[in-house]
Design a protein around this nucleic acid. Structure first.
Lengths: 335, 335
DNA sequence: TTGTAAGCGTTATCAG
DNA sequence: CTGATAACGCTTACAA
């Protein structure tokens, strides 16, 4: 490998001058700089070695995004995709690198990840992960995807939930079924229950705030709950089926995520029921697919959340550091 | 910042011993190791600094994946998503980091990217990009996504194209329209033409091999060509509409990518034509959506391609280094 | 405008 | 099992 020193030696100048030729053009004459650059190229020297620069400067200009599961599950999630697109674009304009980290939610895995990854900060897309506190205690900047810690980007999930519930109430729905995914407990098949039972059984994990928001917005008419086996579309269809069978008088399905809601629409199709006419369906997040399916939902501006997260990471002086972005009710034919 | 040396000094041992305590447990007594580790933790030392290690060892244990466009377009592409999932899983088992690089296809951008990114090798998902030769000339390992250079992972695109064309011929289709995306030239609206004209007008970029394979497989009945304005679903629908209007006797639409084909199915729906009965439609790549739409396609095993690419990158001794993986015709109702 | 020299934090080698 | 020493390749005060 040819080093900066080699170039300097051949040219009969100091390494400083060669360094400047590459990184601080204003520190030497254009003429000398050009000579150095062309000579370096001829010698097979293509510029300062990244590792050396990083060690010296003390930062890598790279930021990590933490996902819990095998990446596949993140890519199946349009919300995360949109979020990542925004995040990535912002990093690119800042000339920074993006490192994708898949880290199981354990102390062990978090420690290993932090010891093997060279980044100047990390973003965690959803709620809590042991890596968050671990990174913070090591002095590594962290931007969270929920209202935890000193720096985060989120929306007012509770208010958003309330808004969509209010939308349903205005339309006279007083037999709502809430369709949600696995939170603390995972069942092998969809389970239906009363809100009171659900409240007693589950822990406030996952999108708890939006769930509570929906229920609060429903006011005096607590929903029944159908708990799907995953947050995906097929699981949503199965849960909708279970809900409709268990509570035939249901007039609306309030889903805690868009994929669940799209699955519910699938199930209505299968039963030749018309969404928005026979039964209302609402989603949550505003992923692109909701438009085609004409699904009423809350747009949580995933892309913007990603953009702002990157901005906080790149610029430690960016204020404020606890961002609660807006959301928007998208009223479509499904309600 | 607390360094390894500080720990060594406090403990009254050499830095070597502290280093060993973290990285080579067999080089010292368990008892001493434990004392060092607990003491280090107490001092706020969480393990060797990544940048130092990287500089010393000469490798970063990180690998880059290069995308041309803003990441959004990569995420809209299910083939790339699947590919990336396989790639990522393989890297994870190798304990290596994954760096996402979005690099416009210019010399300038490629040079900048290589100078700012710390990776031990890169993968380029499709065909040629200036960064490939640039990286190789700098001694950085490159795995390509097409049959170029010393190391690549691909399938026999020509054979795959021939296979799907043969499938159509067996079913008696002799008025096939080939639907493809923009290759060298981009038109503002879909354009239809004869194969001869297309051949004369376009350069052998993009998925040229699979296109030629399809045409060869069609044998004595050259297709007409409809060139869509992008590789996406909506563009596929528009191109299908143009094709059906221009050539009413068309009996089959052979699409060069699955999204185009799904768009074509959309258009058939709109015209109340039945895929596989009134008109045959075929796709290419075998993305997950094809199953639901009952689309005949070629599964190119995107995930496997990603996995093998990562393996070649991680293990420079892995042989052979020019992989042509298998593909499979998936016969469904659309033909 | 250019040069000198001191690190940045680690690990490999080799000797004890 | 432990320690001294020499890189790894670069940047940046500071001095000339």
């Amino acid at each position: 490998m040819v080093r900066m020193q080699d170039v300097a030696q051949v040219m009969g100048v100091s390494t400083t001058t060669v360094s400047n030729a590459f990184s601080r053009p204003d520190q030497l004459s254009t003429e000398l700089r050009d000579r150095i650059l062309t000579r370096a190229a001829k010698m097979g020297y293509y510029g300062p070695h990244v590792a050396g620069r990083i060690l010296r400067q003390g930062h890598a200009n790279a930021y990590g995004v933490v996902f819990m599961d095998p990446l596949q599950s993140a890519f199946d999630d349009q919300f995360k995709i949109q979020w990542l697109a925004g995040f990535s674009d912002e990093l690119r304009t800042a000339q920074a690198s993006l490192v994708l980290m898949t880290v199981p939610a354990t102390q062990q895995a978090s420690a290993t990840a932090l010891r093997n990854t060279l980044v100047d900060g990390i973003a965690v897309t959803w709620s809590s992960h042991p890596i968050m506190s671990m990174a913070r205690s090591q002095g590594l900047p962290v931007v969270a995807g929920g209202p935890h810690g000193p720096c985060y980007v989120t929306i007012d999930e509770h208010a958003a939930g309330t808004a969509i519930a209010a939308h349903l109430r205005e339309r006279g729905h007083d037999h709502v079924c809430l369709i949600t995914g696995p939170v603390a407990h995972q069942h092998p098949t969809p389970v239906t229950m009363t809100w009171a039972d659900y409240l007693a059984a589950e822990r406030p994990n996952g999108p708890w705030a939006r769930t509570q928001g929906i229920v609060n917005g429903l006011g005096p008419c607590p929903p029944t709950v159908a708990q799907a086996t995953s947050w995906g579309r097929a699981a949503g269809a199965a849960a909708a089926a279970a809900a409709l069978d268990a509570c035939p008088n249901t007039t609306a399905l309030a889903c805690v995520g868009d994929p669940l809601a799209i699955g519910a629409l699938d199930e209505l199709n299968r039963r030749h029921l018309s969404p928005g006419v026979d039964i209302a369906v609402t989603g949550f997040d505003g992923i692109p697919d909701t438009e085609e399916r004409d699904l009423t939902t809350i747009d949580t501006y995933a892309r913007d959340q990603g953009t702002h997260t990157a901005r906080l990471l790149v610029d430690p002086n960016c204020q404020p550091r606890q961002l609660i972005l807006g959301h928007e009710l998208i009223h479509r034919a499904s309600s």
